[in-house]
Design a protein around this nucleic acid. Sequence first.
DNA 1: AGCCAGGCCTGCC
DNA 2: GGCAGGCATGGC
Length: 215
Amino acid sequence: MEIYNSFDLLAFLKSKNLLAHCKNPMWWENCGSFQTIIEAILTQNTKWQSVEKSIINLKNAGILDLKKLANCDLIILSHLIKPSGFFNQKAARIKMLCENILREFGDFSSFKNRASRQWLLNQKGIGFESADSILNYGLFREIMVVDKYTQKLLLRFGLEFESYEDIQSWLMHGVEENLDKIYDLYKYEIPLYQIYGRFHAKIVEFSKNEAKNKY
DNA sequence: AGCCAGGCCTGCC
DNA sequence: GGCAGGCATGGC
C-alpha cells in the first residue's frame, strides 16, 4: 500500500466503512454546539466514554451552559468532571475559557462566527489539537485535526513530518487538490469542513480498530 | 497490575 | 525550541 498524498489515504480509509455506526455524519455527536467546546477540553488524553459521564453530570447539574460555567464554583465543577481525569486543571481551564468567551464574544453564536485559531491558542489549556477540534467540530470551520493517531498512522506508511502544522497542511492540501475525486467517492459535493471532520474521524476509528485486532 | 486514553503546560536544558 | 514530568480517572 503506497500513500503518495492524503487523498490516497482518504480513499484507503473510505473503503473500510469505518463510520457506519455513527449517528452524526460528522462523527462527533452534538457537533456544532457549545457542548463540543467543553468536550474538546474534557477529551484531552482521555477516553470518550469518560467524557460522556462528565457531560451527563454537567447536564444533570444544569450547568452545561456558557454563562453558568463562567460563573460556577470551581470545586463543584471539578467534582462533576471527575470521571474525565485531570479534573482540577480541566475545571479551571473550562471556567476561564467560558469567562473569556462570555466577556469577549457575549454568546456562543457570536463566538462561532468570530473566534480565530489564534484566539483559541492563546487560551490556557488549548493547544493545536484542541483548537482545531473546536474549530472543525464545534464551529464547522474548514480545518483538519491532527492527533497522535494521525502521526502514528502516517509513520507506518513511511511518512515523517517536522511538526503538527506540516502534517496538517499535507493532509489539507491533498484534499483540496483532489476535490473532484472526493466528490466522486462520496457521490455528492460534500462540504469541505465535513470532509476534514470525517477524514480525521476515519483515522481515529481505523487506528482504534487496528489496536484492538493487534497481537 | 500495569498500560493507555481523541493533550497541555511548566521548567529545565 | 525540544523534551521529561506532572496532571488523574477508569477500563482492559
